[in-house]
Write a protein that binds this DNA or RNA. Sequence first.
DNA 1: CGTATTGTTTTGCC
DNA 2: GGGCAAAACAATAC
Length: 279
Amino acid sequence: MPELPEVETIRRVLEPSVTDDKITEIFIRQNRMIRGQSLYFFKQELTGRQILKVDRRGKYLIFRLNHKIFLVHLGMSGQIIRTTDNSVSQNTSFPLPDKHTHLTLWLSSGTVLYFRDPRMFGRYILSDPNDESRLFSNLGPEPLGPQFTPSGLYQDLRKRTASIKALLLSQKIVAGLGNIYVDESLFRAKINPAKPGGQISKKQTKILHESIKLVLTEAVNAGGTSISDFQDPEQRIGNYQNHLQVYGKKGKSCPHCGTIIIKENLAQRGTHWCPSCQK
DNA sequence: CGTATTGTTTTGCC
DNA sequence: GGGCAAAACAATAC
């Protein structure tokens, strides 16, 4: 579910409603995803903190608290649902908390945040602000920030023999792209997903850089992609699934040339491309 | 029964 | 030690 555009959509919804709120109570159903602080201290250290700011880095949501940072990675199926109900939600499409609600935060204004994650690939990390750079040390530049440049991208792809698909998924070349947006970006750039990173020309790299920024910007503006179950904290779905060109389009015609879109496994993921446009 | 799914970490090999 | 590729994690749908 959540790649950069989805996480940014969540961030934008949460920011105005939880900023300056205090965490008054916490309930943990499943502690598998909790990292950083020990379980005992997790609850103790989170309770009473004020949310100063909600940021994002790659696919991580960052709650900046007084003297702590709370990082949330939603994995494959994580979501955050906001209600103003104190016990059982009445506004949601299903009763909350349910068996997939692993963490619940009550805030001083009456807001309740439900953290759901059926597949439990997500992570909740409570740490010191000083640890932030270490926690993000494996992430490449923000694709929509000034650090992401065509020349930097070109340098990082030099001498790499792995496929551009695998490299873009790794988060180390650039942060925030997942399976959907890698396929869409490579289609826009007319680059074959199997092409080794080191074989992409300077000119192609510049186009790839532009394509990534374009696709992500469009997707953020559309409120993310709701393929199966993405919804923002207010339970609204995104709109970018209506703009996808190749992802999920196996057997359909390429919007550019009409050739049938292919889907094959690459880098352990279903990979979609136009065999004619993306040589 | 298989296969597939919007992600990352770990493992093992070269 | 780095780069790379595959397994592993888990739930659910088809």
